[in-house]
Design a protein around this nucleic acid. Structure first.
Length: 214
DNA sequence: TGCCAGGCCGGGT
DNA sequence: ACCCGGCATGGC
């Protein structure tokens, strides 16, 4: 069985089980960026509250976040957890966005995708998953997002070794699938759906998972 | 009710 | 080059 066949089989099974996921759950590209930072090791429901709180206070805007103090911002995003850290990270992000791209995500996203990726990765507090989420879901650029669910699901089906790196998993998808942002968008979202509903931590294998007969 | 969530960084070995 | 503790809330 070829790798790409397995990857397609996973996709097909998840898609027919869960249906289209319509990701990212946000109304604007900037909201995607904020969500990507706030969701670092956090429950999405808590992140949603934090984003709602930003909206209600009229702070879901690059320049507004640029100007507000870190401590005030931290209070608004409290429910997302690690709020002091994340307030700092959000401000680091908008600092670059405002000072170097006129606060315009379209300017940030124009040019070579890997140059943009390096630029974003140079911002303290933005790691690979956060940056790739921003590129794919805010920028609509064809990069595959790897997260803990991706790793856990592949590992549980013995498709990868335990000590594999982020880049290796990402390459697995990107070298064997067409570089299509719509496909990558849906695929990652489906893996998250599967991880949230079935492939839980601590359970050895899930008998009701749509991927059980892989 | 404890464990976990759509990570990342910095310091120690 | 790895490994680990710290960061923190709220859902279930």
């Amino acid at each position: 069985m070829k790798i790409y066949q397995i990857l397609y089989e996973i996709y097909e099974k998840l898609y027919s089980y869960f249906g289209p996921q319509k990701w990212w759950p946000a109304q604007t590209p900037f909201e995607v960026c904020v969500g990507a930072i706030l969701t670092q090791n956090a429950n999405w429901k808590n992140v949603k509250k934090a984003i709602e709180n930003l909206k209600n206070n009229n702070f879901l805007d690059p320049v507004k976040i640029y100007k507000i103090s870190k401590d005030d911002l931290a209070k608004i995003i409290k429910s997302s957890g690690f709020y002091n850290l994340k307030a700092k990270r959000l401000k680091e992000f908008v600092k670059i966005l405002v000072e170097e791209y006129e606060g315009d995500l379209n300017k940030l996203f124009s040019g070579d995708i890997y140059k943009i990726r390096e630029k974003l990765l140079s911002i303290k507090g933005l790691g690979k998953e956060t940056v790739d989420s921003i590129l794919l879901y805010a920028g609509n650029l064809p990069i595959f997002v790897v997260d803990t669910y991706t790793y856990r699901i592949l590992l549980r089906h013995n498709l990868i070794p335990e000590q594999i790196t982020y880049d290796e998993i990402q390459n697995l998808f990107m070298e064997h699938l067409p570089l299509d942002s719509r496909l990558f968008n849906e695929y990652h979202a489906l893996l998250v759906a599967c991880g949230k509903n079935f492939c839980k931590k601590r359970e050895p294998f899930c008998e009701t998972c749509p991927l059980k007969d892989l």
